[in-house]
């Protein structure tokens, strides 16, 4: 079975006014079908560039990328029959109502009108948009508009969906409705390539993740695999009584508001927690979060442009 998306040595350099900016540098990614694959990274890391190239909206400078086994540059027409995309910062056409937005998008893609009607009704119900179906999108909140955009592509029959920050601006409840719809989409065997700034979202939805920084893949794997690669897999937050000098023997210490955050291996983490409790300090112990790893990797990359595994 072909991969949903496969990139090999994919590079993209933008040139404006004689100045070149490398957005992607020799990226290799293999994204399997039937799953949500998360792309995380800070602004300018190359996430949107990768998505735009895969979605046939942007030409790469070098390297190859294929969707379901079809090269996006030489078999573009074939690729486009299998994909749908919600671009970053996209907004719906303001003079349409929500129902028209979804229904017309589906029929413009070539879907049979009866099928399009059925799918439109279903997705509007699913994403909590049924009550505003006849409202002009211009009259909706920013979050509702974003949800309407997501509804369009989720209702399509595309097998590979490129969602570039689909939940930006949504409230927590709306985000979860979108998550549920995305999960249902992959339940139908489709693949979702998701970029997001919300690491909890990436972790909740993605079976695999890639962390991009400076146009390169710094970490790749399932959330569990990424955690397994962390040498200090526990985080302990200690506030009061204990000082930095007391904590440093147990692991890597950094200051946080009202106390310290310590990354440690399992045994020192337990010892530290017991010590803190015995001294009457407030303490919380848990596994490192994706955000911890993200900050460590990206922070180190910014400091030294040195790639590598997280050592939190």
């Amino acid at each position: 079975m072909p991969l949903a998306v496969e990139a090999r040595a994919l590079s993209k350099t933008y040139t404006h006014s004689g100045k070149s900016t490398v957005a992607l540098a020799n990226v290799d990614l293999a994204i399997p079908t039937g799953r949500v694959y998360g792309l995380i990274g800070r602004n300018g890391a190359g996430k949107t560039t990768f998505v735009r190239i895969g979605a046939t909206q942007l030409a790469p400078t070098s390297g190859t990328i294929s969707v379901l086994g079809h090269d996006v540059m030489t078999e573009t027409r074939e690729v486009r029959t299998h994909i749908a995309a919600v671009p970053q910062e996209s907004r719906p056409l303001y003079f349409l109502n929500v129902d028209e937005l979804v229904y017309l998008y589906l029929t413009i893609r070539g879907m049979d009108p009866r099928d399009a009607r059925r799918r439109t009704n279903a997705i509007l119900d699913e994403l909590g948009l049924a009550s505003v179906r006849k409202s002009l999108v211009n009259h909706l909140s920013g979050g509702m508009r974003r949800r309407a955009m997501v509804a369009m592509v989720l209702a399509s029959d595309a097998e590979v969906l490129f969602l570039d920050e689909p939940t930006t601006g949504l409230d927590p409840l709306a985000r979860r409705e979108v998550w549920a719809a995305i999960r249902r989409a992959i339940g139908d065997g489709r693949t979702v390539l998701l970029t997001t700034h919300y690491l909890d979202e990436a972790e909740a939805l993605s079976s695999r993740l890639a962390l991009l920084e400076g146009g390169q893949v710094r970490l790749e794997g399932s959330p569990a695999e990424i955690r397994d690669r962390v040498r200090q897999p526990y985080r302990i937050v200690v506030s009061g009584v204990l000082g930095r000098a007391d904590l440093e023997p147990y692991g890597t210490v950094s200051s946080v508001e009202g106390g310290y955050l310590v990354f440690a291996k399992e045994s020192p983490a337990r010892e530290l927690a017991q010590l803190a409790l015995s001294k009457g300090a407030k303490v919380s112990l848990g596994p490192v979060t994706l955000e911890d790893i993200f900050l460590q990797v990206v922070g180190r990359a910014i400091d030294s442009d040195d790639a590598g595994e997280a050592e939190a």
């Binding site: 979605a55 046939t56 027409r77 486009r80 995309a85 996209s90 719906p92 399509s156």
Partner: peptide, 25 residues
């Protein structure tokens, strides 16, 4: 406007609709 501000053209590019159909429409 649809291309730069709304990104609607990008939505259509990533679909089976071809450029001449988009323009003619």
């Amino acid at each position: 406007h649809y291309r730069s501000d709304l990104k609607f053209q990008d939505v259509i590019v990533a679909s089976p609709v071809e450029a001449p159909i988009y323009v003619a429409g």
